[in-house]
Design a protein around this nucleic acid. Sequence first.
RNA 1: CGGGGAUUGGCGCAGUUGGCUAGCGCGCGCGGUUUGGGACCGCGAGGUCGAAGGUUCGAGUCCUUUAUCCCCGACCA
Length: 416
Amino acid sequence: MRLSKLFTKTSKSVPADETARNAQLLIQGGYVHKEMAGVYAYLPLGLKVLNNVADIVRDEMDKVGGQEVWMSVLQPKDIWELTDRWDDAKVDNWFKTKLANGTELGVGLTHEEPVVDSLKPYVNSYKDLPLKVYQIQSKFRNELRAKSGIMRGREFLMKDLYTFSRTEDEHKQQYEELAEAYHRVYERLGIGDITYRTFASGGIFSQFSDEFQTLSHVGEDTIYVDEAKKIAINKEVFTDEVLQQIGLKKDDLVEKRAVEVGNIFSLGTKYTDALGLTYTDEDGAEQQIIMGCYGIGVSRLVGVLAEHFADDKGLAWPKAVAPALVQLVTVGEDEKVISEAEKLYEVLQAAGISVLYDDRAVRPGTKFADADLLGMPYRVVISSKTLEQSSVEVKARTSETAELVPQNSLITHLQA
RNA sequence: CGGGGAUUGGCGCAGUUGGCUAGCGCGCGCGGUUUGGGACCGCGAGGUCGAAGGUUCGAGUCCUUUAUCCCCGACCA
């Protein structure tokens, strides 16, 4: 990707209508465009990050046997009435619309009903279970107030997975399998050490749930962390009774602010019963199916990562999600510099290293400032000075100092 | 949904007690000098001041309504 061809530009001034650091940086860097409150478009660089996060989530879901689908955003009213979740008094953040003939439709805010509905033709026998189905798709929620930049929007990308089990034991096993997969996702994103499985309320789904909370000063939730056990409890269910139930002692807990980056629920047979999804067991008897649902806010994670991996100069993406590993920067207009840079651009990409190539005819200061703002893990500078020593200058975004690396060992240096 | 703040070229802002062709910085275009931490000079394009209504000889400025955005709260997967 050449910066000279990229239609987005960086901005020196902080957007006036954002106070959240994540949105300020993402807008200044041209990663996202704010369309309206709580609704953001992902521009080329932002989409790369979003897709990189989604790919990690997808990979971990696939590894535990998740089968990916793409459900519909438009929702028929009837299946939601079966579970009593159509009424605005019961679920107040629906976006609803109508067909030309007046038929009411919902705009998907979660997909328990549709996933159960879509499984009915296929899941009939004990041989079909257990099962994990998931999708990565935009969700639409009519929040009274959007806030925190891209971390709490009205339209956002979410991974939602649903498990279907024959017994409580089987369900519990799937539930824990997913909880472990979630930990691996956060680990790969570089926030494993500050993300806690957190006992919480179940909202509109169930009495209790497990949230995954990432510590952050901009967090919306207050949680109490047991550092030794690496688990936490949300303030909303913080009572002596619940503490005893989950085996935490008040004295071991530290109060923290955190952002919810995942949430998993046991749904029992509420949805499968209501929509009539059952299976026939070995003895030919009809049995109930136990369900679980597991969400990860993919676009919210982009915000969390932007916010967490940033300094006063800009973004500092972890390698796993950065739009490119390297920002290649030319200094000066010397022909030799340009031709060597062009060569390097090709060679790096051929070696599987993604490159954001700053080939613009602008002054070095501008390029360095933009490299800091955009936050690729490495900045590689090539100039007349470095070429005199057959080298390039390599600086990690998170490091204060740069080092000269011989051109012919750059690839191994970057891959280390 | 309650409370507070805001809205003026693409972005960030100024605009006095109502007064003349609405300014500044960034960015953008053209010309020139520059080239290792956001260079400089000259010229230029770009704004019905969120919208509607009103007061007035005259409104960016005053009044009413309304839309949108931000923050606090409530709510929230």
